[in-house]
Each structure stands twice: as structure tokens, then as C-alpha cells.
Nucleic acid binder design. Structure first.
Lengths: 158, 158
DNA sequence: TGAAGTGGGACTATTTTAGTCCTAGTTAGT
DNA sequence: ACTAACTAGGACTAAAATAGTCCCACTTCA
């Protein structure tokens, strides 16, 4: 379904929570704040720390704090920290493609990958936690799912 | 990893194969042509047929043919046929969001979803099977994976 | 020294995804 | 009329990715 992993989703939530201030928050505190299991949040924070998106402070009274200003953190980085490289296609250097000629088919994926990555890279954590999104053109009210019915009906009639 | 399902990948391959001509091809023929298991390809063709991306011809000498001109078939439709709605986020109308205030965080996802969908919608099957992609700006030679190292290093230094 | 933390990884459970197979229905050819 | 070559649809199984939990070592504060 071309969906983000839950970890990536949690990751952004955790980052958004941390972005409220520059203070140190323990994993359990963040977990309580987000209403999630402490062990899960702990894992997520560890992953974020490995990529320096958050900085850890060890010992009692320790915890995590944002690694840098929310303006300088992109969604792409968070996704990368949680899920690894952002690529829509599988075939990645290991030449899983059976036929060279066929692989010309896949050239398009590169362009699409690029567009996705750019979108993810442009959006900063700072923009994300704003009450209103900077892009004001028509929001879909209730759902985050993109309405594809237009495409479907176009297909049926043709 | 924000990756496409294999089915979606196969789906585009099958469609690309069919797009070579307007003729009727049996599932087993397509499977042989792509070097894949007949049962798998059969399943994929059935899924494509349900969305009218291919038309089925029953009986002996039957098979499948492209539903319409490759120019009028978008990658988005193929993905939809194989994987269902294209949405990067999970929270989709069923209000899985624990906190309303937190959900402002997710407004950004709508914009990102939109961008992705537009990219997928713009790219037609016809463009995909062209030997060269219409978008000529720098291709990454070997991989389809997007190089995220630039992002990473930016993160480390900050 | 103990309580409160993180670091890192092993482990298990769950869910998705992928792949196979079976039965029924349709059509062409003989 | 019969048979071979097909698709339709779904049940079923296998495999893999994802999510979540837990444990033990180390660090710091009081």
C-alpha cells in the first residue's frame, strides 16, 4: 500500500513531541506524553539517537533532547532513521532485474523516487508542528488517504 | 522502507509487457515472457482485470489484452489495482489518532501524499516503456535507490 | 551505593505479503 | 457433444517483514 512503517510514523510523533522545547525528556516521559508503551518509545529514541536526530544524556536525570533546530530536520531524515533508505522500488543495485531490456521500464521509478524524496526533504519538522500547514491548497477534510476514485472512474469509462 | 509491494512491481511489468501490442496474451504466455511462475502472473492479471486495466477474453484462445491505450493508463492506477489506495499514512478516517492536538502534526502528510500521488498519476504506461525517460535530469546510474548520504552528512555536522 | 537513566541487542509475536492450488465457468475446435 | 485451453474467484499455505518486549551492561546523580 505504499505506506510508511509505523516506526516512521512514531518517529515523527516523537520528534514533534521533542520539538516543543529544547529540554531533556526521558523515554518514559515521552511515552506517557504520547500514550504509548515505554519500551517502544525507548526503541524509537535509540534509533533516532543513532542518526543524531536526538542527543542522548546518560545517567539519572538523563534522557533525550532534539539534536538541532526543528527547521533543520527534515521528514526524510526521520524516515531514514527509522526505515532506512527511501526507495519505492526493490531492485537496488543487486540487479534483481531478469532482463536488461525490461529494466528500461523501471527508469521511470527513478524520477518518481526523486519526487518523493524531494517532497520528504523539503518538509521540515518545524513546518510539521505548525498548527496549519504552509501549503494551503485544498486539504482533504477527514482523511489522509488520497481520493483515487476519480482515477478509478476514469478507468471504467475508457 | 516506503517501498512498493512486489505485486505493484510485477503489475507494472505485466502491463509493460502487454503494452507492446494490442494483442491477446494468455497468462502462461506472459509468465513465460517475463520468466515468472504462471500462477503468480495469473493472479496479477486477474487483479488488473478487476480494475479494467486489462480486458479478459474467456475460453480457448482467450487471454488478456490492454484495456486502453498506454497513454491513458497511469502508474497510479496500476498501483491502486495491486495494492489499494495510495496513502503514506495509516490513520485514514478511522481516527486512530490518540490526540487531536497531535494530529496537527500529520497535516503535512496530506501534502506529501498529494505530491506522491500526482507524480504517480502523471507518469503513464506509455512513458514508462519508452527507452528513455522524458525527464532527463540526472539519473542515478546503477541504483534505483535514492542517495540519502547527503542528508545524513548534513545531519552529522549540524 | 542505589535509583534513574541510556545503549545495544536478542527474542517473540503479529501482521503483511507472496505464492500455490482447486473448482467452476467459458469458448474454440473437432 | 466432447475435449482442450483458457479465465474467475477464492481458499489456503508459506515466507518475510514489522512491531513490540525484555534483558543485561554501563553511566550519572544524589
Amino acid at each position: 500500500m505504499l505506506r510508511l512503517s509505523k516506526f516512521a510514523d512514531y518517529g515523527t510523533q516523537v520528534m514533534a513531541y521533542m520539538a516543543k522545547d529544547g529540554a531533556v525528556h526521558s523515554a518514559s516521559e515521552v511515552a506517557a506524553g504520547l500514550g504509548m508503551a515505554a519500551s517502544t518509545i525507548s526503541k524509537i529514541l535509540k534509533m533516532l539517537a543513532r542518526e543524531n536526530l536526538v542527543e542522548s544524556v546518560m545517567g539519572a536525570k538523563g534522557g533525550y533532547m532534539l539534536g538541532r533546530h526543528p527547521k533543520n530536520i527534515s521528514i526524510a531524515e526521520i524516515i531514514y532513521a527509522m526505515d532506512g533508505p527511501i526507495s519505492i522500488t526493490e531492485c537496488s543495485g543487486t540487479s534483481a532485474c531478469t532482463r536488461e531490456s525490461l529494466c528500461s521500464t523501471r527508469g521511470s521509478w527513478q524520477g518518481i523516487n526523486r519526487i518523493i524524496q524531494e517532497a520528504l526533504e523539503k518538509e521540515s519538522l518545524a513546518e510539521m508542528i505548525k498548527p496549519r500547514h504552509h501549503d494551503t491548497r485544498n486539504h482533504i477534510a477527514e482523511h489522509h488517504i488520497v481520493d483515487i476514485s476519480a482515477i478509478r472512474s476514469r478507468g471504467k469509462s475508457a
